[in-house]
Amino acid sequence: MVVLKDKILNFHPDTLYVARKDVNLEKEERIEEALDILEGWVKKQTHFAKKDFSRDYLERTLITAKGLVERAKVRIDKLCTFKTLMPDLYPSSVSRTDYEVLEKYLNHAHLPTLTKDHYRVYLLQLNADDFSSSVVNTYYRYIVVTSEYLKIHDYNCGFIVALDFRNINILNVVAKCTPMELRQIVTLMTEGYSMRIKQIHIITASKMVDALLALFRQVLSSKLAKRITLHKNLDTFYEYVPKDILPIEYNGTERSLKKLNEEFIAELTSEEFVKYFEEMYKANTDESCRPSDKFNEQYVGMPGSFRALSVD
């Protein structure tokens, strides 16, 4: 059995097998056959700027597409296209100084240890709410960079998103997050990076939480909206995410959330990953080479900066 290893992400001994088996890809010959099909298909896409995705990249795409080759094709196409549709969310490179502004307002990280169900937990703790819209945009770009890292380094059976709003005024946050921009980042995460969000947890005792839920209902699918669980304190949150994988400030045994974030930043700004990200930044589309009927069929109505496109 192959045991996965990564510099900042941990896995259970059987995570690779379980992730593959979960989508009926536990047989090596089935995976290789599907990857051969995907590789051949990518090379034939005249509107793709990049045609040499690694097989590791393609396999993770296949897993998040539930093992379905046709769905994986759509996900690859969408992610490349979103890089053209949403240029404001994509920095051309990555630098440590890019995200220093976030330190005042939040601590966050994808937790190193998976749950027993092989879910990856993303935990966001907001500590101040006097931020500007530019800070929100910086945060979105950080999420994009992190997603690019997870796309090539992580294996899981889904994500748990935990949002801790106990230290801030929810109305101030709602006022700074426009539905259109939030919809863009959610669409990019779920339909571009194919993140399978299994649970969403909101931790707050605020009576203004209904305003936050109203915002989320504008941007989330009805399926995702139904996966939101509210917690007035951590006691009920522990019923979903066990203490032992949580940071010390959440009464867990893991390193602090700030420390975990620093480790992530260090890896995201490493020479190796910066080079990789700069390469993937160019993996967009040339829409003049795509039949216009195909673009209209798949992408009209999608959130994005269509002004940046030139479709013949």
Rank of each mutant, 00 (worst) to 15 (best):
S305P: 09
A49Y: 00
Q199Y: 13
R71V: 00
Q45I: 04
R227W: 10
N137E: 04
T64G: 14
V18E: 07
K51P: 08
A175F: 13
T178L: 10
K232G: 10
A109I: 00
N169M: 10
G158Q: 04
T81N: 06
D293L: 15
F237H: 15
E148M: 06
T84P: 04
R75K: 15
E103R: 15
L123E: 02
W41S: 02
A214Y: 11
R120F: 09
L260I: 01
L163A: 13
L62I: 00
V311C: 07
Y57V: 03
I160F: 14
S256G: 15
L16P: 13
R227M: 08
D36K: 09
L246F: 05
F11G: 01
S270H: 02
P91E: 04
D14N: 11
T229S: 15
L111C: 02
L215G: 13
L124N: 06
D98Q: 10
K73E: 08
V94S: 06
K198A: 02
E70Y: 03
S222T: 14
D6I: 03
Y240N: 05
H12I: 03
A109F: 11
F237D: 14
K78L: 13
P291V: 04
V42Y: 01
V174I: 07
L215V: 07
M1Q: 09
M195Q: 12
R20P: 04
R166L: 05
D235Q: 14
T113D: 15
L89P: 11
D129V: 00
I200D: 03
H108E: 09
T84A: 06
R255F: 15
S222D: 15
I203M: 05
K282C: 08
K151Y: 11
R71P: 01
I197Y: 08
D98M: 08
T229R: 14
S93T: 13
K44E: 12
D164E: 02
L4D: 00
K232L: 13
S93N: 10
K243M: 05
D293F: 13
E279G: 10
M1W: 06
N233Q: 11
G304Y: 01
E191A: 10
L246K: 13
E103C: 03
F165S: 08
I203H: 02
T81L: 05
L79S: 03
K104Y: 05
L212T: 07
E26N: 11
S54C: 08
E32F: 07
T253H: 14
E29A: 12
K5E: 12
H108G: 13
D286I: 02
V161P: 02
K116N: 12
P112K: 07
Y276W: 01
L123C: 07
L230C: 06
S54V: 00
A211V: 04
E39H: 06
K223H: 13
L257S: 03
G252N: 11
T146N: 15
C177K: 15
M86V: 03
E191V: 04
